[in-house]
Amino acid sequence: MPTDKEINLAIKTEVPYLNEPSANSSAGQPGPHINEAHKVVVRDLDFFYSGQQALFGISLNIVEKKVFALIGPSGCGKSTFLRTLNRMNDTIPGTSLKGSIKIDNLDIYKGIKDVSSLRTRVGMVFQKSNPFPKSIFENVAYGLRVNGIKDKRLIAEVVEETLKGAFLWEEVKDKLDHSAYALSGGQQQRLCIARALAVQPEILLMDEPASALDPLSTAKIEDLINELKKNHTIVIVTHNMQQAARVSDVTAFFYEGYMIEYGDTRKLFTKPEKKKTEDYITGRFG
């Protein structure tokens, strides 16, 4: 366990701005100091796809029960980074990783044996809605069943609560046994969010969850994110900078595998520290 001083030094080389005395170190904002509010602590993360490096020395902290947005042009590594947080990249042959990711102070690569228990704590919603070819009920119940819950009454209870929590209950309560594919695109995505929530994760990863949806469905998903952050830490990848500005508390800007800067969303969008960030958010490239 490195001391704060060592971490400060490590960060200095990678993300120099973080060490400047600024608004960043005020309470609740991610700063160089690790405190109890930091749910996820990433240090010096390098990531490789069969020898090709995709992430370079990423260090950041994610605050509990806040929305953390990752922005950047396509191919900048933001989705790759997101997928390191629940070890979904493990399923791709030939990938490797250096550095550390700690969730609640536990290294999720070196400190745990059972990846599936990690994934029940760190849920994920994908870019394209991907409900199972099963009924609406079974989609939400799936996570419970594969994790060994057999009590039918308990499953029914959790499914109902979860669907209510995802603001989907009123729309589907009369057709729980219908195929999930009978729902509209936006409803399917909210079903996928409900499915991820059913196993009661602490952290929810969202990989461009609204990029394939119409504005109205997008607004519903964004409302849902605002509601969910009361009880969940949310990490969201988005191409849409307005969306990042609307839903997130903290934003990180990724570019070509490096994290250029991160900090309070309002500040990053109004007074970015780096030229690259400014160019990106003002639409000069990307």
Binding site: N86, M88, T91, S116, S117, R119, T120, G123, M124, F126, K128, N130, P131, F132, P133, Y142, G143, R145, V146, N147, C192, R195, A196, V199
Partner: peptide, 21 residues
């Protein structure tokens, strides 16, 4: 589709459960 496998894995299913369910 691989997206269905990903969805099941992300819910904590192991490979057996992904294949069979």
């Amino acid at each position: 589709p691989g997206s269905l496998r990903d969805a099941a894995l992300a819910l904590g299913a192991n490979r057996w459960q992904v294949s069979l369910t």
